[in-house]
Design a protein around this nucleic acid. Structure first.
Length: 577
RNA sequence: CGGGCCGUAGCGCAGCUUGGUAGCGCGUCUGCCUUGGGCGCAGAAGGUCGCGAGUUCAAAUCUCGCCGGCCCGACCA
């Protein structure tokens, strides 16, 4: 491609709303443009890199035996209602309807823009797969997904419309499904390696997706929106939602008492205030959180210095939950937030359960709210004084705590989630009756797995991880072009002829080459070249006219080598980038 | 949904407090010059100052409403 015929609108300055390096560089390099919040156009350069990534994904998916199809972005609401997670998913789904007219009848079909495709694929398979002879199968697609993100951010990182590769495996049983899972896991390893990113694999929470286990593929980055917990040696790594940890024991437990003792704490409604004004450290307090879970009120108890991990609440089998409102709390417990506690609280019609974090097991000398504004109780012995109906891991792991398996300390790092593999089980196949007959003619639900890669997010993650102050540095495998020819003496016939020959030779050799044939000063071309991050810059300028040698600059190493005009193709092919 | 802030040329911004000719840098166009790191000179085009109403002789500027956007938080498959 000749630059003068292309559309590569580079910018000297980044638009103000681009905050992180990768977002700024993609805009400045003319790879993407924003249409509106969370919605982007891929300009030719951006599209080329996207296609490179897509092709790597296709090759590895095909190699692993998955088969490509393309499902609709428009999906009937009815389908979702048949599925197991419509109520949770509808929060982020766009509804598509005629903009010009009100719906005519209440029975008119409602279409949704698909945020993902478990429902569609499973209902498809329900209709097409009958026999164990047709299994296993793994279907994948590259499709635009739509999610009404409350707060789109960082360009392609968190967008409302984005490209995703999603795959869905169907197997006869768990053992077979785990093989399919492993095949995808291995394919993902190859995909991210080929994309040239440093990634990490972490154990993950299955969330609303459901399922029995999952792994996330993440790109470590300080601008990532996910948090992962890992040991120094990387032996254990998990997403923060999933991470279990062993909390440090309390340094100085409160005094045990024969029974809880009420004391006045006027105006004290925070953990911190109770510490400062009454000398009760956070670790000696019980934090009482009130949630409405599947329409029922539940109390969650944690140590005062711990944080509730809502993903772990979801893991208890609760599908929909929210913090209770102040009014609901006052009605049920007779006190306002800040004075709440579970001592003397009995499970009743109003209160479905008292769930306590494992850390509280066996603890005594604790202080908690008295369910009376302005009063707390001290000397609480958890198992004696509180009717705990369920013990569970509810805490968010913190840096410095210990990995429960190895006992090694954990650290918390930020990362960009680019891929996620789930072993799903039969949640969807049962809902949509994706059943098959086994050898004995007996009916079973297919055992499913699902596997996603955020393709557009991966593109930006690659930039986030591969850039310097001058611009992007594309790994050769995903670079929009491999070589940039720079004609620096556009007015000189000899330089022009040589550049044209190099352009023709490289094209003939099948090398992706961009020819900067603009009538611009060298400085401009150098700046743009570094910004675009094409692996090799082949220069035809003053040095060429003086020596007859072509200068080849490696964008990544910033080193230059020389080649004869006739040996450019081999020089490029010999150098790994 | 809570808190903060911003909409002035393609991009980055000033002007608004104290109402009176709409500006600067970059980019774009023309010509010259120059040709190894966003060079120089000369000229030009480009704006319903987000939209609407109000106050006023007069509104980018003051008031009200609306729309759009950004940041922090909450949320997040």
């Amino acid at each position: 491609m000749r630059w003068t015929q292309a559309l590569i609108p580079t910018l000297r300055e980044a638009p103000q709303d681009a905050e992180i390096a990768s977002h700024q560089l993609l805009l400045r390099g003319g790879f993407i443009r924003k249409l509106t919040g969370g919605v982007y156009t891929f300009l030719p350069m951006g599209l080329r890199t996207l296609r490179k990534i897509e092709n790597i994904i296709r090759e590895e998916m095909d190699r692993s035996g998955a088969i490509e199809l393309l499902m609709p972005a428009l999906q009937p609401q009815e389908l979702w209602k048949q599925g197991p997670r419509y109520d949770a998913a509808k929060q982020v789904m766009f509804e598509a309807r005629p903009a010009g007219a009100a719906r005519k009848t209440s029975s008119e079909q409602v279409l949704l823009l698909g945020p993902t495709h478990e429902e569609v694929i499973t209902s498809l398979v329900a209709g097409e797969i009958r026999s164990y002879r047709q299994l296993p199968k793994n279907f994948y697609q590259l499709q635009t997904k739509f999610r009404d993100e409350i707060r789109p951010r960082f360009g392609l990182m968190r967008a409302k419309e984005f490209l995703m590769k999603d795959a869905y495996s169907f197997d006869v049983d768990d053992a077979s499904a785990e093989k399919s899972y492993k095949i995808m896991y291995d394919a993902y390893v190859r995909i991210f390696q080929r994309c040239g990113v440093n990634y990490r694999i972490v154990e993950a929470d299955t969330g609303v997706m459901g399922g029995s286990f999952s792994h996330e593929f993440v790109v470590p980055s300080t601008v990532g929106e996910s948090e992962i917990a890992l040991t120094e040696d990387g032996g254990y790594a998990a997403s923060i939602e999933k991470a279990a940890s062993r909390a440090a024991p309390r340094a100085s437990p409160g005094a045990s008492m024969a029974q809880p003792e009420k004391f006045a704490t006027p105006g004290v409604v925070t953990i911190d205030a109770l510490d400062k004004q009454h000398g009760v450290t956070a670790e000696n307090q019980i934090k009482t959180l009130i949630y409405i879970c599947d329409s029922k009120m539940m109390l969650f108890l944690l140590r005062g210095d711990h944080q509730l991990n809502e993903a772990k609440v979801g893991a208890l089998g609760i599908s929909e939950f929210r913090p209770a409102t102040e009014a609901e709390i006052v009605t049920a417990l007779g006190a306002h937030p800040g004075s709440l506690g579970a001592v003397g609280v009995a499970v009743s019609k109003a209160i479905a359960a008292v769930v306590a974090d494992e850390c509280l097991r066996g603890q005594s000398g604790m202080t908690t709210g008295a369910n009376e504004d302005g009063f707390h109780l001290r000397g609480v012995e958890v198992e004696r004084d509180i009717k705990v109906t369920r013990w569970a891991d509810l805490r968010t792991a913190c840096a410095g705590e210990l990995d429960p398996k190895t006992g090694k300390p954990l650290k918390i790092e930020r990362a960009i989630e680019v891929g996620h593999v789930f072993k799903l089980g039969t949640k969807y196949s049962e809902a949509f009756k994706a059943l098959y007959l086994d050898v004995n003619g007996k009916t079973h639900p297919c055992v499913m797995g699902c596997y996603g890669i955020g393709v557009t997010r991966t593109l930006q993650a690659i930039v986030e991880q591969n850039h310097d102050k001058d611009g992007m540095i594309w790994p050769s495998s995903v670079a929009p072009y491999k070589v940039l020819i720079q004609l620096l003496e556009a007015g000189n016939q000899k330089a022009t002829d040589a550049a044209e020959k190099a352009y023709a030779d490289l094209q003939a050799a099948g090398v992706d080459v961009l020819f900067d044939d603009r009538d611009e000063r060298p400085g401009v071309k150098f700046k743009d070249a570094d910004l675009l991050g094409i692996p090799f810059q082949v220069r035809f300028g003053k040095k060429f006219l003086e020596s007859g040698k072509v200068e080849i600059k490696n964008r990544m190493t910033k080193t230059s080598s020389e080649a004869d005009l006739t040996s450019i193709v081999s020089a490029i092919k010999d150098v790994p980038a």
